[in-house]
Design a protein around this nucleic acid. Structure first.
Lengths: 214, 214
DNA sequence: TCCGCTCTTGACCATTTGATCAAGAATTAT
DNA sequence: ATAATTCTTGATCAAATGGTCAAGAGCGGA
């Protein structure tokens, strides 16, 4: 699995997208997200994806010439929305409210897009062969910026003194846990109600006020 | 990938293990942990594992007849130690000290055995096809027991009121994050010093006292 | 030492799977 | 309508890969 530029444009020639093209590419990427997130890159087959979206394999490969191209396209499409909640963190807002909002938004994102979460988890778990540059570039830049905001809040005495980077890691880890480790959560809790409603409440209590009785 | 009994004994006949047998099985399982944790089940090949431990493929398959057998054997061997820290949670200890100790122990485990952590992460991420019964059985039982302890502490007013299950999830998620998402952590922090030393400190502050200034 | 059991391997097989291609069907533009 | 372009697919290929087998090498107990 090679690491090309960073994100490849699917069709260099012919920028204009025909109706059928747009529709089928959409179908393919939807199916690919399901399949890749469930079985991983190597565990997924082009046939599986083709079957899931009702296209023949050669037809699918007409739109994306290589399996890898499908994978990077899904990653790219999903990546876009993933950072929105963190981007929304407002330096002018109330620190506790901002972080509570961030946790809530991240939790909702995990609940509503578990496949996307698992897709990233799998990619990173295996060394981020495709999005390594994204992590060191755009992601790091955004996190640096938001960490600075948190650091400023701490300096103003509006938050307890913690390392902003590890705070962000903790929020990522805890919220994505409900998507990435869903089967484990359900195995322990039983498959009754949605775990994320108690989860987000617990998390906010934990991160804002901690366990030690006041 | 089928879900047999639960964990198969590699060699039903001939209980006695010869010297060479014990040594080679050890080599194989060590290599298999490295390979499976790096590439996942489907992403790993028997040849890779054989190469890593210096055995020929047929020779490796002499000890474990199927790829799946290697995988379950590695899982089984690793599973054993994984629950130790949680098991050690002592109902008679001081709640804050006990949980701080648990977090510390779990973080050390993740730091010292990142491959094991990633192996589990991958298995669960893909629906726990092999250890599903383990999750619903032994793991759930242990967590139930420890959750009851936490609940009792809360009832005694020695801890803030949070859902014990989600507290445990939060500890799992945050500590394992440093192993499972290591490349992301390093991409953002830079590959300088060990992230877990600041990580565990931040985590304990967070979970014990929270962000809100006192 | 010698016999039986364990261990090792080169050669080989069947299946899966990513990818190609030529030819035909459908769509679009003129 | 008709020509050009886009779309679709059955057939096929080559490589990768899990697994087998028979034959030989090595080891350990009597």
């Amino acid at each position: 699995m090679k690491m090309r530029a960073f994100m490849s444009q699917a069709k260099p020639a012919q920028a204009r997208k025909t109706r059928i093209q747009a529709q089928n590419e959409g179908l393919i990427l939807d199916a690919a997200l399901e399949v890749f997130s469930a079985y991983g890159y190597r565990g997924s087959t082009v046939d599986q994806i083709a079957a899931k979206c009702g296209l023949s394999k050669p037809n699918l490969l007409y739109y994306f010439r290589r399996k890898e191209d499908i994978y990077t396209a899904v990653l790219e499409r999903t990546l876009t929305g993933w950072l929105e909640p963190l981007r929304a963190l407002d330096p002018d807002g109330d620190p506790v409210a901002e972080l509570t909002g961030y946790i809530t938004a991240k939790m909702e994102l995990s609940r509503d897009n578990p496949e996307a979460s698992r897709l990233f988890a799998n990619e990173i778990l295996h060394g981020a062969p495709m999005i390594g540059k994204f992590l060191k570039g755009p992601l790091k830049d955004l996190v640096d910026a938001k960490a600075a905001i948190v650091r400023a809040w701490i300096a103003q005495g509006r938050l307890a003194s913690v390392d902003p980077y590890h705070l962000i890691f903790a929020i990522w880890a805890t919220t994505q846990h409900y998507a990435d480790f869903e089967v484990q959560v359900r195995a322990i809790l039983g498959d009754k109600s949605d775990p994320t409603v108690v989860g987000v409440k617990t998390l906010i209590t934990l991160i804002m006020d901690g366990l030690r009785p006041r």
